[in-house]
């Protein structure tokens, strides 16, 4: 059974391999897939920076005030801060304001402009260090005006939640606009094969790998280009400019949340530092430069059909 639904700014596809020897309760499969999609809806509603009423926007609206949040938002922000710390700010969930300034202020779905809670001159020096968590009271406080943006982490979390919802089925695939989780085996009984999109040719693959029970996420400079010109949506929080040293980064990891976050961070860091980060975090990854030079972790090199 395979279903596709427009969610989180992309098309989300869930495929559960219906083995002949598996017996389900009537409707069990469809109900499970529906619950998996529900996670995307839930996370989109809570983490959207395009809806002023979303939990994330409410946190961003009141600097200096502890805001109690749901476990979902708390965990997502906590993980985002951990990634920011680990990457010395190459990944930073407070870059939301810069994305607005650069023209990424059009709502993905309705085309309506985003209303930021941060003034134009505020928050210039804001970083992840201005966000603090209170584990006991489950509150988030922003120390100065800034806009939290969980972007890739929210999508990764949604994929992981959907994967957990489908855990009883063993063989399934989740595809959220090219960010994937592959469980078990494909319909033919083999390992899932995953093509890696060519960063310059929309319909070409630059390589292919086999994965099972892992997420594969790719950050590319081709994803969404700014109306202003060459800048794309991946901002280097340290320079506030679009990162330009990598064309795409693909990461294979046990969760989509970490794969997505590390792909974003490695994209910003570029081939050399990015590769070091991926090796240090013990995930597999492939970094492609605009000139299509390949930088692969040792684990990734052995996965790739084309040797790095």
């Amino acid at each position: 059974m395979i279903q596709s639904v427009p969610l989180m700014g992309t098309i989300v596809t869930i495929q559960v391999v219906d083995r002949d020897d598996r017996v389900y309760e009537p409707g069990e499969l469809a109900a499970s897939i529906e619950r998996a999609f529900d996670w995307f809806r839930e996370i989109e509603a809570r983490c959207s920076r395009f809806e002023p009423g979303s939990e994330l926007m409410r946190v961003s609206a009141v600097p200096g005030v502890p805001v109690a949040v749901s476990p979902l938002v708390y965990e997502a922000v906590q993980f985002a801060l951990a990634v920011a710390e680990e990457t010395s700010g190459a990944f930073d969930p407070t870059v939301g304001r810069d994305m607005v300034r650069r023209g990424f202020n059009v709502e993905d779905r309705s085309g309506q402009p985003v209303h930021t809670t941060v003034g134009r001159d505020e928050g210039a020096a804001a970083s992840y260090r201005d966000v603090s968590l209170d584990a006991e009271h489950h509150t988030i406080t922003i120390g100065r005006p800034l806009m939290l943006d969980l972007g890739s982490i929210a999508k990764g979390l949604a994929i992981d939640m959907a994967a957990r919802e489908l855990a009883g089925f063993e063989d399934f695939a989740i595809d959220a606009g090219g960010d994937l989780y592959l469980s078990g085996r494909n319909p033919e009984g083999g390992e899932w094969s995953v093509g890696i999109r060519h960063p310059r040719l929309d319909r070409e693959l630059i390589d292919a790998i086999h994965v099972s029970n892992q997420a594969v996420c790719t950050s590319g400079d081709y994803e969404r280009r700014s109306a202003e010109g060459d800048s794309h949506h991946l901002i280097d929080p340290r320079t506030r400019e679009s990162a330009t040293v990598a064309a795409s980064v693909t990461v294979v990891a046990s969760t989509a949340m970490v794969a997505d976050a590390l792909a974003t961070a490695a994209f910003v860091l570029g081939p050399v530092e990015g590769l070091q980060l991926l090796e240090r975090e013990r995930v597999d990854g492939l970094i492609l430069t605009p000139a299509l030079e390949r930088f692969a972790t040792s684990g990734m090199a052995s996965r790739c059909a084309t040797s790095a």
């Binding site: 595809d175 090219g178 960010d179 994937l180 093509g195 292919a208 790719t218 590319g220 994803e223």
Partner: peptide
Amino acid sequence: EVDYVSGATE
């Protein structure tokens, strides 16, 4: 050739 593709397509 593959089951899925990583990286958004236009």
